[in-house]
Amino acid sequence: MDPRYSEDEQVEQLKSWWKKNGPSLIIGVVLGLGIVIGWQGWGVYTASRAEEASSLYQLLLGVQSESALEAGDRLIKEFTDTPYAAKAALLLAAAAVKRGDAADGRQHLNWVLENSEESGTLHAARLHLGQLELGEGNIDDALAVLKVGERSAFESHYRELEGDAYSLKGDSASARTAYQESLAVIASDSPYRGFLEAKLADLATIETAQ
Rank of each mutant, 00 (worst) to 15 (best):
E78Q: 13
K147W: 14
L92Y: 00
R193G: 01
R4G: 14
L60G: 13
L143M: 04
V36E: 08
K169G: 10
L109T: 06
F195V: 04
V148I: 14
E66T: 10
E155R: 07
R106S: 02
Q13G: 15
A86P: 02
Q210W: 10
K169H: 07
L127C: 09
L143F: 08
D101G: 01
S172F: 15
W39I: 10
A173D: 14
D189P: 00
I139A: 02
T46I: 13
I37Y: 13
G120A: 07
L14C: 13
D140P: 07
V11S: 13
Q131H: 11
A165R: 15
E207T: 11
E7A: 14
G28I: 00
A50R: 13
S156M: 01
F195H: 09
L183D: 04
Y45A: 11
Q13V: 08
D164M: 05
N138W: 15
S54E: 04
A47W: 12
S172K: 12
V36D: 06
E136I: 08
L61R: 08
E9L: 14
Q64W: 08
W42T: 05
L31N: 11
L33G: 03
A89Q: 02
V63N: 04
G149N: 00
G22I: 01
G163V: 04
G120S: 10
D141P: 04
Q131I: 10
A165T: 15
A53G: 04
Y179I: 01
V112L: 11
G194I: 08
L56K: 06
A47Q: 07
I206V: 15
Q64Y: 09
A187P: 03
G100Q: 02
F79D: 07
E160H: 15
Q131K: 15
V185L: 04
V112T: 11
E52T: 01
D2V: 13
I76W: 02
G105R: 01
S167L: 10
W39Q: 12
G149T: 04
L146Q: 08
R106T: 05
L75E: 02
T121R: 07
S48C: 06
L25V: 06
S16N: 05
K147D: 15
D2C: 10
T208D: 06
Q58K: 14
E12P: 09
F79H: 00
T177S: 02
W18Y: 13
A198S: 11
V11R: 12
A201H: 15
G22C: 03
A71I: 00
E207N: 08
N115F: 08
R99S: 01
A187E: 01
D189G: 03
E181G: 06
F154W: 03
A88K: 00
I37V: 09
M1Y: 13
S152L: 06
S54W: 06
D81T: 05
L61A: 10
A173G: 06
S188G: 15
A88Q: 08
L75V: 00
P191F: 03
A153C: 03
A173M: 03
L200V: 00
E70M: 06
L127H: 08
